[in-house]
Amino acid sequence: MPYLDLASHRLHYRIDGDRSAAGKPWLMFCNSLGTDLHMWDAQAAALSQHHRVLRYDRRGHGRSSAPPPPYALSDFGKDVLSLLDALEIERTHFCGLSIGGLTGQWLGIHAGQRLGKIVVCATSARIGTAESWVARMEAVQENGLGGLTAATAERWFTPAFNAGQPGIVRDILYRFTATTVQGYIGGCAALATTDLREEITRITNPLLAVSGKEDPVCPPSDLESIAVRVRQGRHLSLPGRHIVNVESASAFNAALSEFLDD
């Protein structure tokens, strides 16, 4: 498995498609809190035909190591830039969900020249409140992640998807509980201190904001707000809740392909 060794931690990454195919653009995916790079399996399979796809596990998630928390959103953004530099990728399209979408916004603000088009999914310029994330950190520190699985399944997927696709849901929740406590708490700390509502007006990259129509975490209005505030934004809402790329995989893939190829 390929890894990038940084000063404080190690990042696990994966490349799908022909890395040497110079004519194909790069497309990078960034996972949400409590998931790993496999949340993008359906997208990698579909998009790697026409793109060189780069996925990675954010610090403290999947096979990446977990430096001591707290983390800041800038830490996640700099991890992306370090990975791009190490792989000698000058420019890539970027797609991130939830905290991954916040990472994409940070990159658009601070390193927009390294990105082509940006897709932010089931996210907001500010997710939740500092108080709610502190409460989540305290609960996880005391009881671990196992006690959150039922509530997570309800937030992430509609009742119909939970009932109709139990294997997919079970796999996602297994990866959720496999997340390190340090990595999860570190992500919560970053969310508690992040508010990009003013700064995103500086994003000039073409941006697609994708919402889940029934997402209780980041409702469609949050994605509409991002699309309105950036220079070149558009909004699309698809059936599903928070992990909309999994619940509406076919429609999501089609929308992503259309946007990137437009």
Score class of each variant (00 low, 15 high):
Lys213Arg: 15
Gly187Ala: 14
Thr194Ala: 03
Ile200Trp: 02
Ile172Leu: 13
Pro219Asp: 01
Asp215Cys: 03
Trp156Cys: 03
Gly183Val: 07
Pro216Phe: 09
Ile168Met: 14
Leu196Asp: 01
Gln165Glu: 14
Ala190Pro: 00
Thr204Ala: 15
Asp195Val: 08
Gln165Pro: 08
Phe161Val: 07
Glu199Met: 07
Ile200Gly: 00
Val210Ala: 07
Gly187Ile: 01
Thr194Lys: 02
Thr179Tyr: 03
Ile172Lys: 07
Gly212Gln: 03
Trp156Ser: 03
Arg197Thr: 14
Thr158Lys: 04
Leu196His: 01
Ala192Cys: 07
Pro159Tyr: 09
Asn205Lys: 07
Pro216Ala: 08
Leu191Ser: 00
Phe176Glu: 05
Gly164Val: 11
Gly187Asn: 03
Gly164Leu: 08
Gly183Glu: 04
Ile168Gly: 06
Leu207Ile: 09
Ile200Asn: 04
Val210Asp: 04
Phe176Met: 09
Glu199Ser: 13
Gly183Arg: 04
Ile200Pro: 01
Pro216Val: 10
Thr180Gly: 14
Val181Asn: 07
Ile185Asp: 00
Thr177Arg: 14
Pro206Cys: 12
Glu214His: 13
Pro166Gly: 11
Ala160Thr: 14
Gln182Ser: 14
Thr204Leu: 08
Pro216Met: 11
Thr177Trp: 09
Thr204Met: 07
Glu214Tyr: 09
Gly186Pro: 00
Pro216Ser: 10
Ile185Glu: 04
Arg202Phe: 05
Gln182Tyr: 10
Leu191Gln: 00
Val217Leu: 15
Thr179Asn: 06
Leu207His: 03
Glu198Asn: 14
Ile168Gln: 13
Leu207Ser: 04
Ser211Gln: 08
Pro219Ser: 02
Val217Gly: 10
Asn205Thr: 06
Lys213Ala: 15
Cys188Lys: 00
Val169Phe: 13
Pro159Phe: 06
Ile172Met: 15
Asn162Met: 13
Glu198Pro: 05
Arg175Phe: 09
Thr180Phe: 12
Phe157Ala: 06
Leu207Gly: 03
